[in-house]
Design a protein around this nucleic acid. Structure first.
Length: 234
DNA sequence: CCGCCGATCCTCT
DNA sequence: GAGGATCGGCGGG
C-alpha cells in the first residue's frame, strides 16, 4: 500500500487541485530557453491520472532541444504534422512514437512561435509503485521503473496502450491526465550536464542534465550509425 | 562494464 | 525507401 507521502502543504491554486501532491507549475515556468527550463525541471514531479491510481515520478534526467536552430531537434526542419505542438504555447505535452514500439514525452517550452522542448528522460517513482511495476514487468529494480524516456512514459501509462495523454495535452492543468507538479527543485551543485543520448547531430552540445549520483538516471549511450546494408548491387 | 543486434512501424524526403 | 531523442538480451573481457 503506502499511499504516497502525507504532507499536504497548503497549496490549492484557486479552487481545484488535489492538494496531496502539491500545485502544478504555472505557465510562465516554460517561457524560457529550453536548456534553462530543463535544469529547473530536475526534482519536479510528473503526475499521471491514467489508470486506477495515480503514478508520480520525480524527474532526475532531462534533455533540452532548441527547435529550429538545433540540428538534433525534431523541429529543426520546420513544422510538420508530428511536431506542430512544439511551435505552440509552452507547458504542453509533445509525445512521439519511435522505433515502431516506444513513446517518448517532451514538455514544450517558450512562447508560441518558437519551438523549444525538453525530453523527459528519467525519474524516480514516488507514488503508485504497484501500478508502475505492472506497466514495467521487465524492470528488476525499483530504480529501473522509469530509468529511460520510453520506460518513463510506460510507467506513467502515457502511451497508446493505456490511452495516455496525446500531444497537446496541457501539463499546467490541475485536472488533466498529465500534470507537472512543482515538487522541490534540485540544488544547482547537484546538477550535472553532458552531451545528449543517442543523437547523431550536435553530439557535443551539453544539454543533457541529470541529478548527480542518482540511481534512476539512465546509462549514457552514444549514437550508433545504422549498419551499412552491405552493398549488394552490381 | 561495454559493445553489438534485432524488433517494429511511423514520418519525412 | 531509409532511419530513428529506445530497450532488452546476449556474448566477451
Amino acid at each position: 500500500m503506502s499511499a504516497g507521502r502525507g504532507r499536504a502543504a497548503g497549496v490549492g491554486p484557486s479552487g481545484a487541485a488535489p492538494a496531496v501532491f502539491g500545485p502544478t507549475l504555472g505557465r510562465g515556468f516554460f517561457d524560457r530557453h529550453p536548456a534553462e527550463v530543463a535544469r529547473d525541471l530536475l526534482g519536479r514531479c510528473l503526475f499521471s491520472a491514467v489508470g486506477p491510481e495515480p503514478v508520480v515520478v520525480r524527474l532526475t534526467e532531462v534533455e533540452a532541444y532548441a527547435g529550429e536552430v538545433d540540428p538534433a531537434s525534431h523541429a529543426f526542419r520546420g513544422p510538420t504534422v508530428r511536431n506542430e505542438v512544439m511551435f505552440g504555447e509552452g507547458g504542453h505535452l509533445y509525445r512521439y512514437f519511435i522505433y515502431g514500439m516506444y513513446w517518448c514525452a517532451n514538455v514544450v517550452t517558450g512562447p508560441a512561435g518558437t519551438a523549444g522542448g525538453v525530453l523527459l528522460r528519467a525519474g524516480e517513482v514516488v507514488a503508485g509503485h504497484e501500478l508502475a511495476r505492472l506497466r514495467r514487468p521487465s524492470a528488476r529494480k525499483e530504480s529501473d521503473l522509469a530509468a529511460g524516456p520510453a520506460k518513463l512514459t510506460a510507467a506513467l501509462g502515457w502511451n497508446a496502450v493505456d490511452s495516455g495523454p496525446r500531444s497537446g495535452e496541457d501539463l499546467c492543468s490541475t485536472t488533466g491526465p498529465a500534470r507537472l507538479l512543482a515538487g522541490t527543485p534540485v540544488a544547482p551543485e547537484q546538477v550535472v550536464a553532458g552531451p545528449r543520448v543517442g543523437v547523431a547531430a550536435a553530439k557535443e552540445v551539453p544539454w543533457r542534465f541529470w541529478v548527480d549520483g542518482d540511481p534512476t538516471v539512465s546509462t549514457y549511450r552514444r549514437h550508433v550509425p545504422k549498419k551499412t546494408p552491405g552493398r549488394g548491387v552490381d
